Simulated scan of single mutants.
Amino acid sequence: MAYTKQDLLQALEKLKINPRGTLLVHSSMKSIGEVEGGADTVLDALMIYMKEGLLVLPTHTWSYINAENPKFDVVHSEVCVGILPELFRKRPGVVRSLHPTHSVAAIGQDKEDFIKDNELWHTPCARQSPWGKLLDRNAQIMLLGVDLRRNTFMHGVEEWVDIKGRLTDEMEPLVVINEKGEELSVPSRRHCGDHWSEYFWKVDDYFKEKGVMHLGKFGDATVRICETQGVAALLNDMLAINPHLFSNNEPLEIERYRK
């Protein structure tokens, strides 16, 4: 039996998502199971539920925008992180930020302010970028059928406390093409490889224990709801104790971090 829009709206309510707040969604469409109307119904449910707040989806292009292929087109460059953000960015009223590798798309309250000036910052998740604004807004992050390894906000926290070895020293000469077709030079540092986030799983149980993340269901998908201010505060403490926390795949020595 396929899930309906109403089923999905009820699931969002059960997940204790603030409908007047800010919600960023990382997603796996196939994890949800069969939905009447497919991906469009999922987006409809998210947009209806968050109609009095701000809904944000990552519209990343890091997998193919690079020095050899340097031009990011805010209108035409496709998303490399799934079907839901690719469809979302094309919806009427949705705006997309001007970052060559780590853009976001948004609709709702203060959407223009949220994405503003993303092209001014030369790292993937600068504190003044939308990724930092998630913290300022005490946003929630919905990991829909994906786990902490897909939580870009955690890259941001590492960047803000300047964990060594996470970003290239050199900048790539990337270019952003805005909605007017104007080309903007946006030289950018990059993440050093993509393996650091594969170690984010280590804090899953600790996040739950400390109450900065809770689990639920959305269709067939397991969902993690992260509170950005709680996650950032906890990670700041953990990284102060051990800057190499996510530098290896060793299990978390949890007693080292408990207060």
Rank of each mutant, 00 (worst) to 15 (best):
L23M: 09
Q140K: 05
H214E: 03
P70C: 06
V94N: 03
L98P: 02
L43Q: 05
D136Q: 12
K14D: 14
K180D: 11
C125D: 07
W201E: 12
A45Y: 12
G82A: 07
S63N: 09
S247M: 07
P251R: 00
V74N: 04
G37E: 10
W131I: 05
N242W: 07
P173I: 06
H26Y: 14
M171W: 03
K5E: 15
E36T: 04
F200Y: 15
D44G: 07
V56D: 07
D204N: 06
L87C: 05
H214K: 04
T59L: 03
E112F: 00
K14E: 15
E250R: 09
L23Y: 14
M142F: 14
E179N: 11
F207E: 03
V223P: 13
Y199W: 11
Y199G: 08
K259I: 11
R137F: 13
E159C: 03
I48T: 15
S197Y: 09
L143N: 07
V146C: 13
T152D: 10
F114P: 04
V81I: 13
I177Q: 08
K116T: 12
M213P: 00
E209S: 06
W196L: 07
R89Y: 11
M1S: 10
G53R: 11
R189C: 05
M142L: 15
D117Y: 02
V94C: 00
E209Q: 07
P187V: 12
E172A: 15
K217L: 11
P100A: 10
L252R: 02
K208P: 00
L54K: 03
L252E: 03
C80F: 04
K16H: 13
Q229Y: 03
T61C: 08
G219K: 13
S77K: 01
P85V: 09
E68S: 15
V223Q: 13
I177W: 04
E34I: 00
E198M: 06
D147K: 03
H191T: 00
G216L: 01
W201P: 06
T4D: 13
P243G: 02
E227M: 08
G156K: 08
D7K: 01
E86Y: 06
R96F: 10
S97K: 03
G108V: 09
K210E: 15
T61E: 12
H76S: 12
E68W: 09
A39N: 03
D194W: 08
D113S: 12
M1F: 12
E36Q: 10
P58F: 10
T152I: 01
V146L: 14
V81P: 05
Q109P: 04
T4K: 07
I115C: 11
I141W: 06
C80K: 02
P251A: 08
L167Q: 00
R91L: 13
S129C: 07
F200E: 10
L174Y: 06
H122A: 10
V25Q: 13
N69M: 04
W62N: 12
V203A: 02
E209F: 09
V186N: 02
S103A: 15
A232L: 02
T123Q: 04
H122I: 09
Y3M: 01
N69P: 00
G82F: 13
I254E: 14
Y64G: 05
E119N: 05
Q140L: 02
N242C: 04
K16A: 10
N178I: 02
C192H: 05
R150L: 15
E78H: 05
K116S: 15
D205F: 06
P243C: 03
N248C: 10
D237A: 12
I225P: 06
H195E: 15
T41K: 08
G193M: 01
L252T: 02
E119P: 02
I225Q: 04
